[in-house]
């Protein structure tokens, strides 16, 4: 039976949907959307918050008794900056979970595989639970797994593009090979994309832009929740397998006897 729960490094989460906090029109709507999504993991860009300020507007809107606050290193251009951000977050009292993003190009925000690997290696050794955002590269996933990241987070399409699951063939390989949870991180632009990722076998999805920039972000968050729930239920029900070729209804070898 496929569990509704997502387990990362021994910690159980009741939702397979994670949400981001960027691009919202304000912190109130961000908090309401997070609530409606049913997510238990909420990621926040360290660049946007002051982790040392108890009055920080965004942080004050995230109830850490309900959510795992997952700080991310968005904006870091190399391993050194990413490691520095992660350490600052931990020093300020955040849990040692870090969504590792090393995105030297400020436009498509595509992850740098070399610097991400270097940073992951350092952070894992320092005791962080590292969730790395990466391109849908099966070999890189295995390499990251080997050094001890607690998930891999391949992208479905460039971040913020809302284009859906464009890396489908590589994602299939990643899902097939992974020992750690696979979280499809970027490019999910519609509830159907999220459902597809889960149906394909991804363990979870992370959605931000599609919710934050929707006409009604709270309603859209609910739609994503329902889509993810539907896909989780479908997995539990046992997805009928898809076949590349038609299967003859009369077996060709039915005449054989033992």
């Amino acid at each position: 039976m496929f569990s509704k729960n997502l387990i990362i490094d021994g910690r159980t989460f009741r939702s397979r949907l994670m949400v981001g906090t960027g691009k919202f029109a304000g912190s109130d709507v961000m908090a309401a959307a997070a609530e409606a999504s049913g997510a238990e993991i909420v990621t926040v860009a360290l660049r946007r918050v002051d982790v040392n300020n108890p009055q920080d507007d965004i942080l004050n809107h995230i109830d850490t008794s309900k959510y795992l606050l997952l700080p991310n290193t968005s904006g870091a251009r190399d391993a050194e900056e990413a490691v520095r951000l992660a350490r600052i977050a931990r020093a300020a009292g955040c849990e040692p979970w870090i969504k590792l993003e090393v995105t030297p190009d400020p436009y498509y925000l595509l992850p740098d595989p070399i610097e991400t690997f270097k940073a992951a290696e350092i952070l894992v050794k320092e005791g962080f639970k590292v969730l790395p955002y990466i391109n849908a590269d099966p070999v890189l996933c295995k390499r990251l797994e080997e050094i001890g990241t607690v998930t891999v987070m391949p992208l479905g399409a460039p971040i913020g593009s809302n284009k859906g699951i464009k890396t489908v063939d590589n994602l299939r390989i990643i899902i097939e090979q992974a020992h750690v949870p696979v979280v499809v991180d970027a490019g999910i632009g519609a509830p159907s994309h999220a459902a597809l990722a889960i149906e394909m076998g991804a363990d979870a999805v992370l959605v931000n832009t599609a919710i934050a920039t929707a006409g009604d972000p709270v309603k859209m968050a609910l739609a994503f929740k329902l889509a993810v729930d539907a896909a989780v239920t479908a997995r539990d029900a046992g997805m009928p397998s898809q076949k590349e070729k038609a299967e003859a209804s009369s077996p060709l070898t039915g005449f054989l006897r033992d």
């Binding site: 919202f24 912190s27 946007r48 520095r84 951000l85 600052i88």
Partner: peptide
């Protein structure tokens, strides 16, 4: 619109 007061942190710079 959300007025973004902080979008970077000098402590991140090496």
């Amino acid at each position: 619109y959300d007025p973004v007061m902080k979008d970077w942190d000098k402590n991140f710079l090496v």
